[in-house]
Write a protein that binds this DNA or RNA. Structure first.
Lengths: 118, 118
DNA sequence: TGAGCTACTCACCTTTTTGAAAGTAATACC
DNA sequence: GGTATTACTTTCAAAAAGGTGAGTAGCTCA
């Protein structure tokens, strides 16, 4: 059985392990934006519709922990913090891109227009 | 805001919509096997470690509902039911493949051997 | 003095997903 | 009659994910 432990969690497949890194509702939208440019916390929050502070900061922390992004703190008041994709993080971008394209294709097959008129 | 409804559920991104089709712990492992060959319920159950009857049958029903697989019932006792990937389902295979490869790459970077000796 | 700014954290709650265990239908075979 | 077979369903429980609303630090500027 191809199963394994990592950080005291049991995984069954590489798929599960992959989605531990980039899965959930918010991780891919965050990574995608950070691959376009370095962004501050507040910029991400404005740019990602509906995300809450709790989800944004928890997901950023998780992404930092597994090494996909870097957190850069500037000693200033009010605070300034930037997030940047790492080399490891950039490996996720082609994966995210193909999932996005698949999603758009499925939407078209379902008759949903996208993007919903600009 | 690029958000939309489908089947009375609100989606924020194409990524979310894609993962509605192929996301969760079990859908990709199922689809991957069915792309290799047509399989019976019991064969899938034996081949996918740890999956329970509840998860297998519920995931198969969801995949059938959105048209990624076909359910073929033979009038026999005891029952015989086969599952087959549809044309629409086969569109998901390249996506699954790239996620699998990414998962394996992440495992190697984490020092986890895969497959864990055959 | 007091409001404003930024990047958060915390406690609590609801929803969604997954799991465990048991039960069922219909027929064949002993 | 009793057992085996296959493909399920049902109920209850647990865990994981996500959402809500409020609060905080520390300095600046009016």
């Amino acid at each position: 059985m191809p199963e394994f432990f990592h950080d005291s969690k049991l995984y069954y497949t590489p798929i599960e392990f992959a989605l531990k890194h980039i899965g959930g509702t918010w991780k891919m939208p965050i990574l995608w934006r950070l691959h376009l440019r370095v962004m501050r916390y507040g910029e991400l929050k404005k740019d990602i519709p509906h995300i809450t502070d709790k989800m944004l900061s928890s997901q950023l922390r998780e992404l930092e922990e597994i090494g996909l992004i870097t957190r850069i703190v500037y000693a200033a008041v009010p605070p300034k913090v930037e997030y940047q994709l790492t080399e490891k993080g950039s490996q996720a971008i082609p994966v995210i891109e193909i999932i996005m394209k698949y999603g758009v294709a499925m939407m078209q097959e379902a008759g949903i227009p996208y993007p919903p008129h600009s």
